[in-house]
Design a protein around this nucleic acid. Sequence first.
DNA 1: TCAGTTCTATAGTGGTTGCTATACATAGCG
DNA 2: CGCTATGTATAGCAACCACTATAGAACTGA
Lengths: 215, 215
Amino acid sequence: MNLPSAAPSTVPRPSKGRPRAFDRSEALERALDVFWRLGYEPATIAELCTAMGINPPSLYAAFGNKAKLFLEAVDFYDRKYWDAARVALEEEADVYPGIESFFADAAAILLSPRAPCGCLVVLAAINVSPESTEVYEAVRSMRRAGKTFFAQRLQRGVEDGQLPASTDIAVLAATLKAMLEGMSIQARDGIGQAELAGVAAHVIKLLPPRSTQHP
Amino acid sequence: MNLPSAAPSTVPRPSKGRPRAFDRSEALERALDVFWRLGYEPATIAELCTAMGINPPSLYAAFGNKAKLFLEAVDFYDRKYWDAARVALEEEADVYPGIESFFADAAAILLSPRAPCGCLVVLAAINVSPESTEVYEAVRSMRRAGKTFFAQRLQRGVEDGQLPASTDIAVLAATLKAMLEGMSIQARDGIGQAELAGVAAHVIKLLPPRSTQHP
DNA sequence: TCAGTTCTATAGTGGTTGCTATACATAGCG
DNA sequence: CGCTATGTATAGCAACCACTATAGAACTGA
């Protein structure tokens, strides 16, 4: 039976043997940047190694293989860039301003000047060869989780008497997710900051009129 | 000075020499299917040849190279699957039902049971290696053309006094395009027909309230 | 019949890919 | 100091990629 072991990188010194000569999470961030700019398959091990400042054997020893490195990078990305926006949407009691500011946040994230444009989860592994199905499925399940997240927040909005009880949660969540994913492609294709913010501002019109009934 | 020569495939007999042993446009459709299912870079020449029923030298003699074959296939796709919906949107005098039925059409196209899911222009060349920049730029410019098409139709809606004069055409067109592209990803990720139709039905809410002024 | 021309099929080309075998370096522990 | 364990660096593996050289086959025109 496994103890809930701490994350490997937080352990200061595993035990004996030659210590690792590079910072694992720093290397992961460099890899994230490469995957983000190029996509999963176009990113080569050679380019990843150059960006990470290490050699292939170190990469494989620390991360397993290219797919695992990518998935770890995607997970890191998701938490680093989207956690705050998700928390804000959950902590905002009213679903209307919650959705409104979530999409405003999203517009800013997708065109963050210190990062590549668009969402890694949406763009990096859309068209991959059949032998990378595992990676495609992983990002797809993350996209599905995003849709479920919207659905749960909307459901709470219904239970709180803000959204009408007749709201079709599943369809509305899919609509919001489609909007968010479409914004990623707009970002990748070079839309301006103000214009994308304008697109995000339209999203609130997709919600039904506020319910007049109390919960 | 070039005469406007007819399309090569419509010419019944070019001239002398051994005649081609396969139907060029039929082979193009087979190639389209492969690119659609796999994406531009994951589709290999070997797989394309198998699907087209020809060998590599015939492919290169008839289409130039992989990139040109892809671009020709994308062009064919765009005309075959989207021309009717575009014409309908232009011929519908009122922009509101025009947009509404355009997105209903789109939902049906993106989940057409006899075709792969999602739009080839959106999905097939999103994440490509740097040496395929030419192909990426080509599909990107097609996406831009789609946005411009929306913008022109909305502009006509303003001029016809249906949309308010204060409508921000550029932002609204970008919003519609984001919605359409997001629907492609939903389709690729396995959304159901009814649910995608529900998403499409939400789009009309993105348009501003109908103008009460006459043109 | 016999060039001249164009397509087809086989069999490869050089280049790139993800990944690793090998050898060596650096740590803890006795 | 060994001994063991784990890291690093070089170099190279087999597999795959887009593409093509070569030779032969099938047509037109004379």
